[in-house]
Amino acid sequence: MAGKEWPLWEVFIRSKQGLNHKHVGSIHAADAEMAVENARDVYTRRSEGISIWVVESSQVFASDPADSDALFEPANSKIYRHPTFYEVPDGVGHM
């Protein structure tokens, strides 16, 4: 390890069966095992989850905020992509 600081890890928690893992925050840890334990201690003390993923933050490649115009704005004018123009038949339950 280069510096004195332990690497940062991003933490994802699945709150219950059937739901997806959601990003909840980050922690420091020296290795993956420690990262899972620290995440458990910091983010699941009040029964928030049933599964934990950790990813070293340096492994996350993020979009550049400077590109956000090009990346996201074009979608704003394309409301037809939202499925709001359909009638949902009565027989269909919760969608």
Partner: peptide
């Protein structure tokens, strides 16, 4: 020694 371990020990 670090906040994560502080929480672990007190847990």
């Amino acid at each position: 020694p670090i906040i994560e371990e502080d929480i672990a020990l007190t847990n």
